[in-house]
Design a binder for these strands. Structure first.
Length: 378
DNA sequence: CAGTCGTGGGG
DNA sequence: TCCCCAAGACT
């Protein structure tokens, strides 16, 4: 990219950003910790979803020292429902590294940041640019799309040589005045204007410079990402409820829902009065009679979990197998559970029980406006 | 490099 | 209902 073209695009992005940027809680701070938390939460996650999580997280762990001293399960619980839970684990590891090996100060440029767990090329560039005002590129999905269109890059820009070309162009845009605002501006234009569907080219500050637009190729560029094939997985979830508590089982430290608490998952769709009962006895559990209470279809990136939900109500056994625990329903927000656990639990409860729990469950999990029901009803 | 790892919103 | 996908990183 020619220096003139880069300067022109940079100036247009900067002007537009200063006039149109959304006010977000992590904007207007140079605190690398705050910037970092927001960046990790935003990975593959919509801003609207992140907002309540970010507020709670920063209130509870306002500094890297506080986070470094946090309990792993408390952090997982704070992440509950956000998905991609390994992010939280790597974040905790990085916080401890910053405190123990960097005197609590983040490295002030991308190379140093890149060495920390959970910092990839994007996050390192973003923190370097936003917090330290370094002239670094921060190429996320938004910037990839924007740059691919600006330069009319054909083919797959998500990986390989296509991704390299995007980074090269983004790095050409980085040097100059206010690099932090330029980097955020590129992201913001990608997020609000140069959108994947129905891009608002009429409102775009760099429409004049856009090669895809000149070629009438905006709809075609970037080429759609190759998507993973989803495999259906049949499971049976056993929700054992007793005395206002539910029996949960901790997942292994690696893999799906790592270290989180889930219902007892059995492979396959098992009959309540036969195979399911047998499988539980293999866990040395006597759940008593099982009743089928519904089904949950939970879609993940590479799998679709098709879950048959069974409910057990026998009296709690004296001793539980390793890795299992009783979770009080009125304290479930303090437990590290993925959304699928909450959904299975919902499916196992009757309406009255659900209503009771809803009063105590965190209402910010969903935006109130999205509920569609009036307050006081229900 | 290709597979793994969540969730919820919107067309 | 289905499909796309959103401020990616790690193995």
């Amino acid at each position: 990219m020619s220096p003139d073209r880069a300067a022109s695009i940079r100036a247009a992005i900067l002007d537009w950003y200063r006039a149109n940027a959304r006010e977000l809680p992590w904007r207007g701070t140079r605190d690398p910790y705050a910037v970092w938390i927001s960046e990790v939460m935003c990975q593959q996650t919509r801003v609207d979803t992140v907002l309540p999580y970010y507020a709670r997280f920063m209130a509870r762990w306002p500094t890297v020292e506080a986070l470094a001293a946090a309990d792993d399960d408390d952090v997982r619980a704070a992440w509950s429902g956000l998905g991609y839970y390994r992010r939280a684990q790597l974040m905790l590891k990085a916080a401890r590294e910053v405190v123990s090996q960097h005197q609590g100060r983040f490295p002030d440029d991308a190379d140093g940041l890149l060495a920390l767990p959970g910092f990839g090329r994007y996050t390192a560039g973003a923190v370097a640019a936003f917090a330290f005002d370094r002239p670094r590129a921060a190429v996320d999905g938004n910037v990839t799309r924007l740059v691919a269109r600006l330069e009319a890059l054909e083919g797959d820009v998500m990986q390989g040589s296509g991704a390299q070309a995007v980074w090269r162009a983004a790095e050409a845009l980085a040097p100059g005045a206010s690099p932090g605002d330029v980097a955020q501006g590129l992201i913001e234009v990608g997020a609000l204007v140069c959108t994947a569907r129905n891009p608002r080219c009429g409102a775009c500050p760099v429409a004049e410079a856009c090669k895809a637009r000149a070629q009438g190729a905006v709809e075609r560029i970037p080429a759609p990402r190759k998507r993973a094939t989803k495999k259906a997985v049949a499971l049976t979830a056993v929700l054992w409820l007793d005395g206002g508590r539910v029996l949960l089982s901790r997942q292994p430290e690696a893999g799906l829902f790592a270290s989180l608490w889930c219902p007892i998952f059995l492979e396959g769709h098992l009959e309540p009065d036969g195979a399911a009962d047998e499988a539980l006895r293999a866990h040395r559990l006597d759940p008593g009679p099982l009743t089928s209470t519904g089904q949950v279809r939970h879609v993940l990136t590479h799998r679709t979990l098709e879950i048959h939900v069974l409910r057990a109500s026998n009296k709690a056994p004296r001793r539980l197998p390793e890795g299992m625990a009783w979770a009080p329903l009125d304290a479930l927000t303090e437990w590290a559970i993925p959304s699928v656990t909450a959904r299975c639990l919902d499916a196992a409860l009757d309406r009255a029980e659900r209503a009771k729990i809803r009063l105590t469950r965190r209402e910010t999990r969903r935006t109130p406006a999205a509920q569609g029901s009036l307050p006081g009803l229900e």
